[in-house]
Design a protein around this nucleic acid. Structure first.
Lengths: 385, 385
DNA sequence: ATCCTTTGCGGTATCGTTACCGATAGGTAT
DNA sequence: ATACCTATCGGTAACGATACCGCAAAGGAT
């Protein structure tokens, strides 16, 4: 783009004939005639070493250098060592842009998550990076901030960067999946994790919400609880449904009849938790165990119970869901279901690698389910030895 | 690399003459002669649309398409609109590799942090991404995992990807900075944040540890505390030194004499916290306020105090450092210094952008100090209204 | 001694995009 | 009418790396 050297604007530039074969310009804004300087690409970014620099220094061709660096090909060991030595000396860093362009392979995978600040996703990302980097892949991370539009933009940006694959956890507001389908049709490997899209046949990593909830409630039963309440989330939220299902299955297994007044549905908010515990404590037959679908609610409830002089776990046992850093530090420490987010990331990355290296016939889209783990702590430990 | 079509090995391949101008090969492993098929690059990744595809469809040249897409240049509005329309229809995504190669500018910044799972760094990254994406930059994140070697590898990978700049928080084990100096000499913009390197003249974002500690201790004094203890970190750790300095300055300002027995140094561990509180409570003149350099220690101490029946904040006020999610949820909620990590990220990204757009003479390496914020909660609120 | 391999390396096209230079048709001033 | 502009577009050479092809010299077999 031509910019006026006087006013730095580019919108008012007009061509104004030729001078000695060079284009002459006119800036309408500041009424100034000028001829562009060559933008001097040579001197601008001549800081990085190329294989040509190495070749010239050693008096060989660029092909030879390329062969030497790529490891194995028609090249003598002597020449190879010499080239490697020179490359090290000159601090040669291969230009991955050029490499990616010619090989149409960037060794980079794109990851889209709602928000990196949520510990769950931070761990997922960490798991992905560990597996990816061991396989020689770089990772590019984008946050959708739970916005559909941003997610679409993220997909486009990653595709434009020619990532080799896409690992994605959809935003909560993503309802149409055209942006994913488009790339899937183009043949870009896509792996879903956590919040998946069932309209597309992709490998997926799912959390075993039902199983985790089952473990939690079964544990409460084993602690001797008979009346187990459930502090749930919104009825239309899938994870809430799954965890509720686990809750019910556990009760069923131990032949405990379901008391509908013990099921408190809400929105995971603090207000909901306060109100819920209020309601539970006003029941004629109070609960002796509470399964909270969110660790935050669990902690809030414990505070409320303490204020009323109700003892945890002696009077009421509490189990949460999701193991954040502080659940172990509070008093009493919270028994909870650890969701293994790091493992989720590892699995997702592994699925991608399988898809890349896998033979043609093994291209069935696998679904991996990551089980939750029960971490027993004080908030539910009645049988202390 | 040539691979045997029978046994898929590449290490045993020998050349074996020419047939119709094509190289003939011999596999020593499976005793098989063959001629390579052309690796058919055409059909391999012909999934992405290029400007040439658009050009052919419209019967114009690639130059024209490029001009149309780049926004403003010698092109008629009619043609431009037509090209833009076709580009949208074909879901054209510019190849950023090719763009980066020719422009020697990738619009990508590399970020190196010790660990994304630490909430502090997750927030920093989030802040960086927000500012960067608004300026049209992508972000590539690497974790050093507190390893010098990994950090060096990260730097090289990012440089190989030709990022436009590097934002880095050094690992705790980084002692030599040659890997950074090298890139700095090459002219790659480098911004330091949090754990900086003073051997290189780079823009930096620092945390005001001293100021934060001062605020915390001053707050304790205002709450009427007279004997303020300090649960510190290792003596050789810089952040520990700075926070100690803030502690001392606050005492000095209010003419409180320093009692050395109230300064407990340790390693931030749980054991250290337990031992520290033990020691403090056995003093003839017990503290009535404790400043903890780590929020984790603060919470641990509060648990200990509760066990002994000592009331917070009535008997002892507690202030922590670092505002994690759960500090607000516990009982009593913890007064703490919020370090504004998101802001740190924003500032770091802004410094990078300044360096990129800034004029030649304004290339002085600025240092920005991000102040901590006192978040007053129950653990120190004696003057309740 | 002749012919065929093998080894080791150089040359060129190519990836997708942009910068630069030219070229052409039509417009405008003299 | 002539000379000179202007607007708009095409062609080509890069960017850095690799794949493919070819070729000369040395080695080996008959």
């Amino acid at each position: 783009m031509v910019v006026c050297p006087k006013c730095d604007k580019s919108d008012f530039i007009q061509l104004a004939g030729f001078v000695r074969g060079r284009q002459r310009f006119y800036c309408k804004s500041c009424a100034y005639h000028f001829i562009t300087e060559h933008s001097d690409r040579k001197s601008r970014k001549k800081n990085q070493v190329t294989i040509i620099d190495i070749a010239e220094r050693l008096g060989v061709s660029a092909s030879t250098v390329s062969r030497a660096l790529s490891g194995k090909s028609d090249i003598s060991e002597v020449t190879r060592q010499e080239i490697l030595k020179t490359a090290r000396e000159m601090d040669y860093q291969p230009n991955l842009l050029a490499q990616g362009l010619i090989l149409s392979e960037t060794h980079t995978i794109g990851v889209i998550i709602p928000n990196i600040e949520r510990p769950f996703f931070a761990s997922v990302v960490s798991g992905i990076q560990q597996v990816a980097s061991e396989a020689g892949y770089r990772v590019m991370i984008c946050q959708s901030n739970e916005s559909h539009q941003t997610e679409v933009a993220n997909v486009q940006a990653l595709v434009a960067s020619r990532v080799d694959g896409l690992l994605i956890c959809h935003s909560i507001r993503t309802e149409t999946f055209d942006h994913i389908k488009l790339q899937h049709r183009k043949g870009i490997p896509i792996i879903h994790f956590d919040r998946v899209c069932n309209e597309i046949d992709t490998p997926k990593v799912l959390l075993d919400n039902e199983g985790g909830a089952f473990l939690a409630v079964e544990h409460l039963l084993n602690q001797g609880c008979k009346n187990i309440a459930c502090l749930a989330g919104p009825e239309n939220l899938i994870i809430s449904q799954e965890r509720e299902s686990g809750y019910l299955k556990a009760l069923q297994k131990y032949d405990i009849s379901v008391r509908s007044e013990l099921m408190i549905r809400g929105d995971f908010s603090t207000a909901h938790a306060s109100e819920g515990i209020e309601r539970l404590l006003s029941l004629p037959q109070k609960p002796d165990g509470i399964f909270c679908m969110h660790y935050k609610n669990a902690i809030e409830i414990m505070v409320k119970l303490k204020e009323r002089g109700i003892k945890v776990p002696e009077d009421i046992c509490i189990v949460g869901f999701g193991d954040e850093s502080l659940t172990a530090m509070i008093e009493p420490s919270l028994t909870t279901i650890h969701q293994n987010p790091y493992l989720v990331g590892q699995k997702a990355a592994s699925l991608f690698l399988e898809k890349m290296t896998g033979s043609e016939e093994s291209q069935i889209s696998k679904t991996v389910i990551v089980a939750g783990e029960l971490i027993v702590r004080d908030s539910s430990s009645r049988n202390k030895v």
